Simulated assay, not measured.
Amino acid sequence: MGLLTEQQLHNLAMNVVGKDLEDMGYEFLAVNSKKSRNPQFVATKDKQLIFVVVRAVKYPENPVLYNEELMQKVAKHAATHNAKTFYAGVGIANSVSYDLPVDSEEDYILNYSELIEIK
């Protein structure tokens, strides 16, 4: 198949974060897999609404660093719905060599620790 496109990398990150949210007991109200539309997930648990922005981050970029301006814009919108805002960066690298692009024919490594709350 070859190199993964930006959208395929984003979908991979979405799957990782979606599974994490499910494991934490969240119920999805809306899912948007387009990278250009934010947030990617709107979910609820115990009557608490959350907005989650997901980003696939290619090595050597740090997956916990986020665009402050974007996240504040999403947080402001979330506040109007009494929702909390989270950032979920998923680092993705080729397991053969971090310097190679991510290829569907080779294994890859994911670096995702947890949701980061934006206040």
Rank of each mutant, 00 (worst) to 15 (best):
D103A: 09
A93M: 13
G89N: 01
Y112G: 04
E69P: 02
S104I: 04
A83I: 00
Q72M: 08
E61K: 12
A56Y: 02
E68F: 08
P60V: 05
A83F: 02
S113F: 12
T85L: 03
E114R: 14
V74I: 13
A78M: 01
D103F: 06
V64Q: 11
K58R: 07
N82H: 11
Y66E: 03
P60F: 08
S95V: 11
P101Y: 04
Y112W: 00
D107T: 12
S113G: 14
K58N: 06
N111Y: 02
H77F: 09
P60N: 12
D103Q: 04
V74S: 06
Q72T: 01
E68R: 10
A88V: 00
V102D: 07
V52N: 10
E106K: 14
H81S: 13
K84P: 08
S113N: 15
E114I: 08
E106G: 12
I109F: 06
G89I: 00
V53D: 09
H81K: 10
I50C: 09
I92D: 03
Y112L: 02
A56T: 06
Y98T: 06
H81M: 12
S97I: 05
E106L: 13
R55M: 02
V74N: 05
D103E: 13
P63S: 10
V96L: 15
Y59E: 09
T80K: 11
P60G: 12
K84L: 15
L100R: 05
N111D: 14
V90T: 04
E69D: 14
K58T: 11
F86D: 04
N82C: 05
N67Q: 03
E68D: 13
E106D: 15
K73P: 04
S104D: 15
D103V: 01
L65H: 14
N67F: 01
N67W: 01
T80A: 12
Y59W: 15
Q72A: 11
K58F: 00
A83S: 09
N82W: 02
Y112I: 00
Y112R: 03
E105P: 04
N111R: 09
V53G: 01
S104K: 10
A79M: 08
Y108T: 09
F86Y: 15
Y112T: 00
N111A: 12
S113V: 15
V54M: 08
V102H: 03
E106M: 14
L110Q: 11
V57K: 02
Y87K: 03
A88Y: 00
N111F: 04
V52S: 11
E61W: 07
T85M: 00
P60Y: 06
H81Y: 11
V74G: 05
E69F: 08
A83M: 03
P60I: 12
Y112E: 02
V54H: 08
Y59Q: 11
K76D: 10
A56V: 06
E114D: 14
N111M: 07
P101K: 05
L70D: 01
I109C: 10
K73N: 13
Q72R: 09
N82I: 02
A79E: 15
Y98I: 04
L65I: 14
L100G: 03
L65P: 07
L110D: 01
K76N: 12
L100P: 00
V53N: 02
A78R: 00
